[in-house]
């Protein structure tokens, strides 16, 4: 088990090198010069050259990469071209916001999908099931920014229940610090609701038809015991694994939601970095998002083997 985890952890650097080399090449081979964009056209060529030198943009690509890698290994992700800030400090500002938002979205998705998945499996092919299918279809088909606009309109503008913005602002009460997360996490988590409900429904249907469920019933166990101990314990194995995988994925896809709700998270930072060709920020953030995704995947594997005694790595 631990040997397997260490082996998987050992693979991470290799994947990250491949990812970052790709990003390195892609961002530099698309048109647009970060320094030029920042300083405008009137600046003297000497000033531009000086700054290019400072950011090593005058060096050959492979040297730039190797130097960057050397710095990364020493905990330095460079400085933003645009912002007067190191990439690490930008990350420490932005990552917690995105992490909390992803967490809130996932908690919402899990809380909704567990009852929906179970009920639709138990009441399969009844109107309850069709209703759940309808909800998941909405989750799959509405783009999250559209859902965000609907939520803003209904819950904030009309009913005045929740604030639209406010994440990152200093707040007085607990509710005031939680409230701004509600709408974005609903909008962001809806797709996960759909994914997780469908998954739980199908794995629950599969489990309920298994012979060991018939055995459990033949033992005269309480229906709740059969459902929770015998069925759910099996059905949750793929479900929990999926939560871990989806969580890693959620960190990287918040751009539209952050933009809609003016959230100072990683998504808006990346968006600005791309617009301004802020290479160090793009690279640093990509590295962190990719690492996070890889780590949650390993976590998913660990969870799988913890939950299913048949799996031993």
């Amino acid at each position: 088990m631990w040997r397997y985890v260490f082996r998987r952890l050992g693979q991470i650097p290799i994947v990250l090198v491949v990812v970052t080399i790709t990003i390195f090449i892609v961002v530099r081979s698309t048109p647009g010069d970060p320094i030029q964009i920042m300083l405008g056209m009137q600046t003297s060529p000497d000033a531009v050259a000086a700054i290019r030198h400072e950011f090593r943009f005058d060096q050959p690509l492979y040297r730039q990469y190797l130097l960057w890698l050397w710095d990364v290994v020493h905990g330095d992700l460079g400085r933003s071209v645009r912002l007067n800030q190191s990439v690490v400090s930008l990350l420490t500002e932005r990552f917690p916001v995105s992490f909390r938002l992803a967490l809130a979205a996932m908690v919402f998705a899990v809380l909704v999908s567990i009852p929906l998945g179970i009920i639709s499996a138990l009441r399969r092919n009844t109107w309850v099931d069709y209703l759940c299918t309808g909800v998941t279809l909405i989750g799959f088909s509405i783009p999250n920014f559209a859902l965000a606009l609907v939520l803003i309109f209904v819950l904030s503008v009309k009913l005045q229940l929740l604030p639209i913005t406010g994440i990152g602002a200093t707040s007085s009460s607990l509710w005031a610090s939680i409230a701004p997360y509600v709408l974005p996490s609903l909008a962001l988590g809806m797709l996960q609701v759909a994914v997780l409900t469908r998954l739980l429904r199908s794995s629950m249907i599969d489990v309920l038809s298994q012979d060991y469920i018939r055995t459990a019933r033949a033992k005269g166990l309480m229906p709740s015991t059969v459902l929770v101990v015998h069925a759910l314990k099996n059905a949750l194995i793929p479900f929990v694994t999926m939560i871990a995988i989806q969580f890693g994925y959620l960190i990287g896809i918040q751009v539209t939601i952050e933009y809609t709700f003016a959230i100072p998270g990683m998504g808006t930072a990346i968006l600005n970095a791309v617009v301004n060709r802020d290479f160090p920020v793009i690279q640093g953030f990509t590295l962190v998002i990719a690492s996070f995704f890889l780590l949650t995947n390993i976590l998913a594997d660990i969870l799988y083997s913890v939950l299913d005694p048949r799996i031993r790595y």
């Binding site: 055995t215 459990a216 033949a218 005269g220 309480m222 194995i237």
Partner: peptide
Amino acid sequence: QMLDVRAARIAMIFQDPMRSLNPVLS
């Protein structure tokens, strides 16, 4: 009431012992 009859009064053994036992419970 039937729950109290099953296993206590009438018990059953099934064909495939691998699939009749729950894989995730000891």
